[in-house]
C-alpha cells in the first residue's frame, strides 16, 4: 500500500493541472465562441498571405 504515497498525490496533481488549464482557458475567453473555434482550427491563416491569394 505504500505506493499510495506517490500515486494519490500524483493523481490529484494531474487533476489540478487540468483544472488550472481549464480556468486559464476560460479566463482568456476561449469558451466565448465555440462555433468559431471549430472553424478556426481548420482555417489556413498561418500561411503567408501571398500563397493564399494565388
Amino acid at each position: 500500500m505504500n505506493v499510495l504515497v506517490y500515486l494519490v498525490p500524483l493523481a490529484l496533481a494531474l487533476g489540478a493541472l487540468g483544472l488550472a488549464a481549464f480556468l486559464w482557458a476560460l479566463k482568456h475567453g476561449q469558451f466565448e465562441d465555440l462555433d468559431g473555434a471549430a472553424w478556426r482550427a481548420i482555417s489556413d491563416d498561418d500561411l503567408p498571405e501571398e500563397d493564399e491569394r494565388s
Binding site: E32, D33, L34, D35, G36, W39, R40, I42, S43, D45
Partner: peptide, 26 residues
Amino acid sequence: CGACIATIEKGLRRQDGVRGARVNLA
C-alpha cells in the same frame, strides 16, 4: 462559416489604422 471569419478579419486588418478584428461566430 470559417471562410466568413477569415474574409472579415483579414479584410479589416488590411485597412490602415485597424489594430485587430475578432469575429464571434456564435
